[in-house]
Design a protein around this nucleic acid. Structure first.
Lengths: 352, 352
DNA sequence: CCCGACTGCTAGAGCGCGCTAGTAGAGCGC
DNA sequence: GCGCTCTACTAGCGCGCTCTAGCAGTCGGG
């Protein structure tokens, strides 16, 4: 086998990419029908007998034929591809991506992923998607400026997930942040907490809304004097740092924490556990997202659920509607969050 | 602006993807030259005068022309696209992906990502990549059967990252697992540990090798009697469960843990911290991967570094070499792991 | 003045597919 | 016998581009 491959290589003078990729014509020839018929069969269009269909599929399978999406794109006006921009390291994005695949398939779309990373900004990620002929863009927690997004949205249907862009002509899917935060604060207050500190999400998706809602909820409960917002972002690191800051002054330490998101909450938990505090005995912690990290049994994080599958579904649908020309007005889809009380919240410690 | 889009939509009868996308022919017409010349100019090939080049670029700019990558792919034999299969939830994969982008760019390749997920198995992920005309495949921690991989590799250059496939004709990049494990055990033994338990990685990449190396290293140190392998996999959950199992019998509890990977170690840490144990005071923990989770300051995990950037580089290079026809024999690239002592290991507790 | 080489350009054949406009043949009523 | 419909299939153009072959025109050497 090894030898065979080597000889093939020399035969084809380095033009290996196509050395054996079968085409529709190959399948057609094998079955003894026309190329057009094979095309029909693969597009699942009527006009071929059941028997022929089976023979076509069988032949295709034997040859290892896969439709060439470049040729498909070129031939039909629709590429049937949606691009998804995400941050590879974000577990909540992972949850949404998992939800996107099945919904997209159901709508007849293929999915292309493009990651942002420290060395690869959002514009680069989007350009890659565009040059691959995506018809629509799903942007998970986009950080770009509103006007860039708006420019993009003029050229191609775009939906921003997890972040609001008020006044920008872009569809968006996000959670009613204020509501989730309010429920979380209500829960903590009910348990008896009053010193509730918020770890900020910085430039993260939804942070502005969560921060504002935190302040409002605290005031609503007459706890304006206890408002404390620690700087942070949506990483474990920032949660741990906030923990260190709090631990430096244990006497006046808050009895409960509302973290900017789950990752931040987990960083916080790690740090306080390590410092020997009991959760929720010494301090209560609430996250945000309910990413799969949160319901791991050993974390058992009280958090605010943002249904990722539902967000995925709505995002795909939003883009699909635009592409089908069903809708042209901007739509902001707001999901109800769901507060989930788990094991990291309880009554505040008694202080002597 | 909004209105403009709507009217365009109705004009083009829903055929929005191509509503006004200019082609090479448009540019050629505008400049008054042939399509072929425009093609030359855009490919930066010799054969056009400087003056003409400028006119072409100017016209293209005015028309907003962008080359259509689908048509390019179709027309030229090389697509210059590499496919990367990953598990979107795996932080170590995220680290590698981040390393792949710059190296690929440097080699002139574009990157397509395809994720596996519970609802989307590896074959599906790979099919998506293939139908998008990837010339080569980088598979991160593939779980598929060896013969499937072999079949794939017959058609297209494939490199498996993080997992060995002995006897299979596939390039691979992975770490010398045994060496890393040996160093970890040496370190623990030096610190005075003898009751060192391994949490198994199940079907995870490298698990078999790590388990075997653990046993060998223990025997080498005359600790065969202390060999203990707890079942697990590469998730936080399994680490936490192993912790629970150990905590059930504190008296005979191991003094040190070698986890299957970092995620598992972190799950373990969370659980023991939460149970009030001190790390490393009560128990030492070693991870594996040195993913970015490990060097977060609050985790500060002693672990075995598998350089993800280096793995990314070697993987891209391996595929690129195949594609350039430079090499045709199978290559197994084995990286030296690097043991990194951080804050989760120390001398064992004294027992009275 | 002719030959060859070189420059700057063009014609036209694909790449693999989708899709429209057909055709061939069977069945059926009258 | 005819027209009709219906099923099962085919021919062939075009999507936007790349790339080979080739064609005018210029220039320099013999």
């Amino acid at each position: 086998m090894h030898d065979r491959r080597m000889s093939e290589e020399s035969e084809t003078r380095g033009n290996r990419a196509r050395q054996s990729r079968p085409t529709m014509a190959d399948v057609a020839a094998k079955v003894g029908v026309s190329r057009a018929l094979v095309s029909l069969v693969f597009r699942n269009e009527p006009g071929a007998s059941k028997e022929t269909r089976e023979r076509v599929f069988q032949a295709a399978d034997e040859l290892g034929y896969r439709p060439d999406s470049a040729a498909q794109m070129l031939a039909r006006s629709r590429s049937k591809v949606l691009g998804v921009m995400l941050t590879v390291r974000n577990p909540f994005h992972a949850d949404i991506v998992e939800g996107i695949y099945p919904v997209a398939e159901q709508h007849g779309y293929d999915i292309l992923l493009s990651a942002t990373a420290p060395t690869r900004d959002e514009r680069k990620a989007v350009e890659a998607l565009l040059s691959h002929r995506c018809e629509g863009l799903i942007m998970l927690g986009p950080n770009m400026e509103a006007r860039h997004l708006a420019e993009l949205a003029e050229r191609i249907p775009v939906v921003a997930v997890g972040r609001r862009f008020p006044g920008v002509e872009v569809d968006s899917v996000h959670t009613a942040e204020a509501k989730g935060v309010r429920q979380a604060i209500d829960h903590l207050v009910e348990l008896g907490h009053s010193a509730i500190t918020h770890i900020d999400g910085g430039k993260g998706a939804g942070s502005v809304e969560r921060r504002r809602a935190y302040r409002a909820a605290m005031r609503k409960h007459g706890l304006a004097g206890h408002i404390q917002v620690l700087p942070g972002d949506h990483t474990e690191e920032s949660g741990a740092q906030a923990a260190m800051a709090l631990l430096a002054d244990r006497v006046n330490m808050a009895t409960a924490i509302l973290a900017g998101n789950d990752r931040c909450a987990i960083g916080f938990l790690d740090a306080v556990w390590r410092a020997g505090l009991r959760v929720p005995g010494d301090i209560s912690v609430v996250g945000y997202d309910d990413s799969h990290l949160a319901h791991l049994s050993h974390i058992d994080l009280t958090t605010v659920r943002q249904d990722p599958d539902r967000q995925a579904e709505l995002a795909v649908r939003a883009v699909a509607e635009r592409l089908d020309g069903v809708r042209s007005e901007v739509r902001e889809l707001v999901l109800d969050p769901k507060f989930v009380a788990r094991g990291t919240t309880g009554p505040p410690p008694r202080r002597g």
